[in-house]
Amino acid sequence: MKTFKNLSILLMAITVVVLAGCTQSANSEDVTTLRLGHIQNESHAWHQGAIRFAELVEEKTNGSVQVDIYPSSTLGSDRDLIEGMQIGSVDFALAAGVMSNFHQPYAILEAPYMFQDLEHLEDFLYGESGKNLQQEMLDETGVRGLEFWIRGPRQLTTNKLVERPSDLQGVKIRVPNIEASVESWTAMGSNPTPMNFSEVYSSLQTGVIDAQENPISFTANAQIQDVQDYLIMTNHVYGYVQLLMSDLTYEKLDGSEQQAVEEAAQEARNYQNEIVFQEEEKALQDMKEAGVEVIEVDTEPFEELVQPVHERLADKYGRDLYETIVNLR
């Protein structure tokens, strides 16, 4: 009897394990796993915001949708991520100015000194004009803008003291491959050189370029302070990053999951926007401690030089959009 009893217990245990395995398998089949890519490293505010977004999506869908995060250009450059969302190989991405290469009116937002300060930028992004721009982008590209996240203002780093536009003569400066950036830095007197950010450190180290411009946290996380002497506080772009989603992916989700993703995006925006400027302050301190000299400049002469660029962009990509931004000042 004891043998039969033990055998019965063993069979029951096996049954439980098998059933548990079947349940786990069934549950795993019900989970949709999506991929989110970005170009920053894991210490950056973008990544922290992405983690919060993934947590919220899982929570709000009761685990039916999970988001795996791929930082540090693991899924490719900004452009690769956008193209991936258009064909459905990438589900989400955090991307900034590169969208102007896919929906051209974004070029106006990327022009240096288009926005006067952070409040001016937020008034545009979080108003009807920002929503309209995202809808136009969706219609043209198949990429859905979920939320705008705020970035710190872009600053210039160099190995040459720059206090006025004339100091930029002959300076080879890395810029993103964005029309507004190339034209504006040309107008300010420099020699702009578009390249992927992943190439910037080595290019500065070897003298291929002399300077670069980015938010301070972006710059510090890439250890640019090791190969640059000056941080020039130009405040030339008050910018954003967008949390984007492939519309092909969006349409595969059911209505409740779509709503959950949208709610998670908004809450993650608020979270990221709270921590991004804390990160900027820490990054500035890190750069100072590394020996980088911080230079405050009068930005008005720089602003004056890019006004013709503003006008060209307005004529080319939308006078109405340009006037909307100007009128919010």
Score class of each variant (00 low, 15 high):
182 V>G: 00
77 S>Y: 13
230 Y>P: 11
251 E>S: 15
168 L>W: 08
271 Y>W: 07
317 Y>V: 00
184 S>T: 13
204 L>I: 04
105 P>I: 01
211 A>P: 12
249 T>M: 15
116 Q>Y: 07
4 F>K: 15
138 L>R: 14
188 M>W: 14
105 P>S: 04
87 I>D: 07
147 E>T: 02
87 I>Y: 02
79 R>C: 05
277 F>C: 03
304 E>R: 11
123 D>Q: 11
110 E>F: 10
293 E>G: 03
316 K>I: 09
243 L>V: 02
317 Y>R: 01
222 A>H: 07
269 R>I: 00
276 V>Y: 15
239 G>W: 00
265 A>C: 02
220 A>N: 15
194 P>H: 14
77 S>L: 11
121 L>C: 08
218 F>E: 14
142 G>C: 03
96 A>C: 07
65 V>P: 12
17 V>L: 09
164 R>S: 05
119 E>V: 10
151 R>W: 03
289 E>Y: 02
240 Y>S: 01
235 N>W: 03
81 L>M: 08
327 N>L: 00
110 E>R: 12
260 A>K: 15
285 Q>G: 14
271 Y>E: 04
5 K>A: 05
126 Y>Q: 03
113 Y>G: 05
292 V>H: 01
121 L>F: 06
211 A>Y: 12
242 Q>E: 08
105 P>E: 06
154 R>G: 06
31 V>D: 09
282 K>N: 14
180 A>E: 12
238 Y>I: 04
136 E>S: 13
276 V>N: 04
